[in-house]
C-alpha cells in the first residue's frame, strides 16, 4: 500500500508537469486575450488524433508526426482567434464563453464522425524504470522532463524577447500596450498559436500514455480549469505550483478511492476556490 501511494505521488508529480503545461496555455490565453477557453482540453484530443492520423494514415515517422501535430494545433489556435474570438472581442464575456462551449460540440463530434467512437492509440513499448518496489513508466518521465524544458523555454521567451514583452504588456494593460506601439492583433494570434501548439505538444507527450476517443479532452479541460483557478486566473507562476498540488492530490486520491472521487474532489476544490478566493491560492487581492 505504501509503495502504491509513493508511486501515486510520483505519478502525480510527473503528470503535474504536463498539466502545468496545459494550465500555462489556458492561463496565457486568459491573461492576454481575456477569454476563458472552454474547449482547451478538447484541443488536446484533436492534437492526439492529428498525430495518430499523420502516423497511421500517411505513415509519417512518429516524431515528425508529432511535430506536424503541434504545428497543426498552432494553426487551429490562430483559426479560433480569427473566426470566433475576433468577432466576439467586444461582446459580453458570456457570449465568448458560450461560443467556445459550442466549439466543444463541433470538435468532439468532428472527431466522432472522422475517427469514430472507438479508442485509438499508437502502440508503443516504453521501458519501465524500477527502484526496488517502485515502478516508474519512462513515458511519464519523458513527458515530465519535456514539459519542464518547454516551460523553461517559454519563460525565457516571455522574459527575454520583444514579442514576449509585448505579450506581457498586452496582458497587463491593453490600451497602454497599444499606446506604446504594440499591435495587439499580432499578440493575440501569437498567444493563440502558442496556446494551440501547447495542446499539440501535450498530446504528443500523451501518445505513449493514453488512447484517445472523442470525449478524451473533457477531463483535461476540467483539470486545466481547476489548476488555473487554484493558482489564480492569469497567474502563470501560481498555475505552475498548483499543477503539482492538484496533480498529486488527484493521483493519490484516485489510488485511495476511485477516479471519480478524485475528480469530484478536484471540482469541489475548484468551486470552493471560486467562491472564497477567486484570486487563487497565490493571488493577491484585485
Amino acid at each position: 500500500m505504501v509503495e502504491q501511494i509513493i508511486m501515486a505521488l510520483l505519478n502525480g508529480i510527473l503528470l503535474g508537469g504536463v498539466l502545468a503545461l496545459l494550465a500555462f496555455g489556458l492561463n496565457l490565453i486568459f491573461g492576454v486575450v481575456k477569454i476563458i477557453h472552454m474547449a482547451y482540453g478538447q484541443f488536446v484530443m484533436l492534437g492526439f488524433y492529428f498525430i495518430y492520423f499523420f502516423y497511421t494514415a500517411w505513415h509519417i515517422p512518429l516524431l515528425l508526426s508529432m511535430a506536424m501535430g503541434i504545428v497543426a494545433m498552432g494553426l487551429i489556435g490562430i483559426l479560433v482567434q480569427l473566426v470566433i474570438i475576433n468577432p466576439l472581442l467586444k461582446a459580453p464575456r458570456l457570449n465568448q464563453l458560450l461560443a467556445l462551449a459550442s466549439l466543444i460540440i463541433v470538435v468532439e463530434n468532428l472527431a466522432q464522425v472522422i475517427w469514430g467512437a472507438d479508442y485509438r492509440g499508437i502502440p508503443l513499448t516504453m521501458p519501465i524504470i524500477q527502484f526496488g518496489e517502485i515502478f516508474i513508466r519512462s513515458s511519464f518521465l519523458i513527458a515530465f522532463i519535456g514539459a519542464i524544458l518547454t516551460l523553461g523555454l517559454l519563460y525565457l521567451f516571455l522574459n527575454r524577447t520583444y514579442l514576449g514583452l509585448g505579450i506581457r504588456a498586452v496582458a497587463q494593460d491593453l490600451e497602454m500596450a497599444k499606446g506604446v506601439g504594440i499591435n495587439p492583433n499580432v499578440i493575440y494570434y501569437l498567444t493563440q498559436a502558442t496556446g494551440g501548439a501547447l495542446t499539440g505538444l501535450v498530446a504528443a507527450f500523451f501518445i505513449p500514455i493514453y488512447t484517445v476517443h472523442p470525449h478524451f479532452g473533457a477531463s483535461f479541460t476540467l483539470m486545466a480549469f481547476v489548476i488555473v483557478v487554484f493558482g489564480g486566473m492569469g497567474n502563470l507562476l501560481g498555475g505552475f505550483a498548483s499543477a503539482f498540488i492538484i496533480g498529486i492530490a488527484t493521483s493519490v486520491t484516485a489510488v485511495l478511492s476511485s477516479k471519480e472521487i478524485a475528480d469530484i474532489l478536484a471540482l469541489v476544490l475548484f468551486i470552493g476556490m471560486m467562491m472564497i478566493r477567486p484570486q487563487g491560492l497565490f493571488g493577491t487581492e484585485s
Binding site: G166, A169, M176, V180, G181
Partner: peptide, 25 residues
C-alpha cells in the same frame, strides 16, 4: 508618443522592461 494620465506604467513589469517596451516599434 503619449505619456498617459497619472503616470500609467505597466505595474508588473520591471523598470527596465517598461523602458524596453517603450522601444517596441
Amino acid at each position: 508618443s503619449l505619456v498617459p494620465e497619472g503616470g500609467r506604467v505597466f505595474p508588473h513589469l520591471s523598470v527596465l522592461d517598461n523602458l524596453k517596451v517603450g522601444s517596441y516599434n
